[in-house]
Simulated assay, not measured.
Amino acid sequence: MASAAIHIDMPLGVIVRKIPGVTRWAQWNWRAVAVLPGAGPADWVELRREGDAVEYHAATLPLTLWAAEAEAYLANLSDKQPSIYLVLRDEARDGQPLDAVLVTASPYEAQDYADTGEEIVEKIPMTEGLIAWVRDFALEHHRDEHFVKRKRDKARVDRVEDGKGDARIRQPADVYRAPRRAMQ
């Protein structure tokens, strides 16, 4: 199945925990805590409540692995704790506190979303089965790129070109000369 495909998908449920904020500026602190590989559809279903802390099955999103991203997946797997990255937007709609946009195993794609500053990117530890699934796909599709050293052109850069100005501007004389006093 994966050998002929350039990508594969798996539905991935995302568990998000809501706890009271510790500052007066943030009423709630939202944190992604776990993933559920192969989960069914969900839309902010409450799973567990302990005092003020509530865990939700926030969404089930497709985790898509692309053959072209195999190097990124291997970089993720070489980390101390391989992770899934969840991208959330702070756009409350239809009673949802946050909008779950994307899950990815690529740390490079997650960095792109984090750089915009408009999304919240959460790092969630991968399960053992998910690590094996991503590893098998990445090893099957990874291709080493051979380093090609660039060659310098043959232009001589050691020559001195004093007195030459901008070639686009016509100059009657040396543009680097000191200005002279007008003669009367």
Rank of each mutant, 00 (worst) to 15 (best):
M1S: 10
A4V: 15
P11E: 07
R17F: 00
I19M: 10
I19Y: 00
I19W: 01
V22G: 05
W25E: 09
A26S: 05
A26G: 03
Q27G: 09
W30R: 08
A32C: 07
V35S: 07
V35C: 09
G40D: 07
D43K: 14
D43C: 09
V45N: 13
E46R: 14
L47E: 14
R49I: 11
D52M: 11
A53G: 08
H57Y: 07
A58H: 05
A59S: 12
T60G: 11
L61K: 05
P62W: 11
L63C: 10
L65N: 04
A67L: 01
A68M: 13
Y73G: 01
N76T: 04
L77E: 03
D79I: 03
P82A: 09
P82C: 02
I84N: 04
I84R: 07
I84K: 06
Y85L: 05
L88I: 07
D90C: 07
D99C: 05
V103M: 08
T104N: 03
A105K: 03
A105C: 05
E109N: 06
A110M: 08
Y113V: 04
A114S: 09
D115H: 12
D115K: 14
T116I: 01
G117L: 06
G117I: 05
E118A: 06
V121C: 04
T127S: 14
V134A: 01
F137A: 00
A138P: 02
H141V: 05
H142N: 07
R143F: 09
D144L: 15
D144N: 12
E145S: 11
K149P: 04
R150V: 14
R152D: 04
R152Q: 04
A155V: 02
V160F: 06
G163R: 03
G165W: 06
D166A: 11
D166T: 05
D166S: 12
R168Q: 13
R168A: 15
R168L: 14
I169D: 12
I169E: 11
I169T: 09
Q171N: 14
Q171S: 13
P172R: 15
P179L: 12
R180K: 15
